[in-house]
Design a binder for these strands. Sequence first.
DNA 1: GCCTTACGTCAACAGGGTTGACCCAATGTG
DNA 2: CACATTGGGTCAACCCTGTTGACGTAAGGC
Lengths: 240, 240
Amino acid sequence: MSSRVPEERRRRRPTRSGVLLSEDLIVGTALRLIGEHGSEALSVRRLGAALGCDPTALYRYFHDTDDLVLAIADRIIGDAMAGFVPGDDWVASLREMALRVRAGYLAHPRAAALAAHRVTRRTSEIQAVDTGIGLLLSAGFEPAAAARMYLAFIDTVLSHAATEAAFLALPGQQREADRRAWRDVYQDLDPVAYPALTAVRRELPGMADSSFEEAVDLLLEALAARAPTHRASTGGSSPG
Amino acid sequence: MSSRVPEERRRRRPTRSGVLLSEDLIVGTALRLIGEHGSEALSVRRLGAALGCDPTALYRYFHDTDDLVLAIADRIIGDAMAGFVPGDDWVASLREMALRVRAGYLAHPRAAALAAHRVTRRTSEIQAVDTGIGLLLSAGFEPAAAARMYLAFIDTVLSHAATEAAFLALPGQQREADRRAWRDVYQDLDPVAYPALTAVRRELPGMADSSFEEAVDLLLEALAARAPTHRASTGGSSPG
DNA sequence: GCCTTACGTCAACAGGGTTGACCCAATGTG
DNA sequence: CACATTGGGTCAACCCTGTTGACGTAAGGC
């Protein structure tokens, strides 16, 4: 059922509407479908209709729907990490990795909400994990620590990205209501019951903003503090 | 459709099997169903069967499935934070807060996965935000910094908890496949193409474990390092 | 030009959420 | 006590979903 046959060996026969199917075409069409009509628009039948083929033809390329979702997730990772080369500064490199992954997810918020928590087991993900762990090894961490630290790092990045993507995937009305909540509901509170909120009252509208970079920076600070070898460049000297 | 009629005014008529329905009973039964028969057990038909009533009777109490999920989420939040009182050690208190929220989500992963990214604006949430920001103010942070730090903290906690809940909410087959991926796929890789993964090969099965506590500890370390005033008690001396 | 078989197609099944009609009994009123 | 009202439990039905097995056709190797 699944794509056990190598891509080049396939006997690609045009569908009734003349389209030549391929894994890439299916994944790309699924991403477009989700981006245009929401993550609930991704169904085998709808995808078949969008591709111009019988829905069950997809089962010749993917074992089941979950297999397709994993392929979509790996495509997002691959696009996000395309052309990335780690530099000398491992902290800066991990930071760029975080920002790239986040940007990739935010580019497809509805698909990200579907695929963010999965292990794709495919090449793009494997490549990214190798790069990230390599950076931590270069920082002097022992293998066991490097693996654990990378897991904490990437889970934080992916979790935050998924949260932001889920927020962007909300219908505009609910999204704005959530954003306004910090301005409206949290402004007229009993000072006795909520002293801390009253003290920081003027800062609360900012709670609707993203905490992604702040959280990543805090995590990287802790990692740098734990690293056996100190960072090569502490003064921001070395360019790109 | 929804529960516009006050609970006490309801004309509660026993079902065919003699059960008296109520919002509380339905929510409780839904939680029990999820806990006993796995995450995929929550469906209107199954819930009706478990309650001993026609499935569509639920629509007299909740507008739709989403409405029911939100009611469940509200119960979870209330239960998780019930009885929590912050102690003298602000780091330890934030840590307990994180663990409580996480435990509440993991106890009901399916419901949590569906409602984790919503802003409730209800008293439990407001109370929690006040407590958390109060702890950061007691650490010496200025109002603006306290608000930003709390946002980074709670977003990390909620994002990680949602990720873990989403994983547990997966159908058992997909969940096990994701877990096995780190043992199977990642073991036979080309050492030249993936040098870092090869170096930490023996540590990779642990990648299926949770990074929640590691991530929270790293974040709290960074917060403690940034705090203007040092922690009051470093040796665990003061009793409750 | 044959033979094999990959793969697109079709019909069907089991499960899902949701709706509208139906009707009984619980409740408010006299 | 009796009546009118209506809340709410029940039932049948609709349309959606993922997935499977049979079927046949055309593509590629020889």
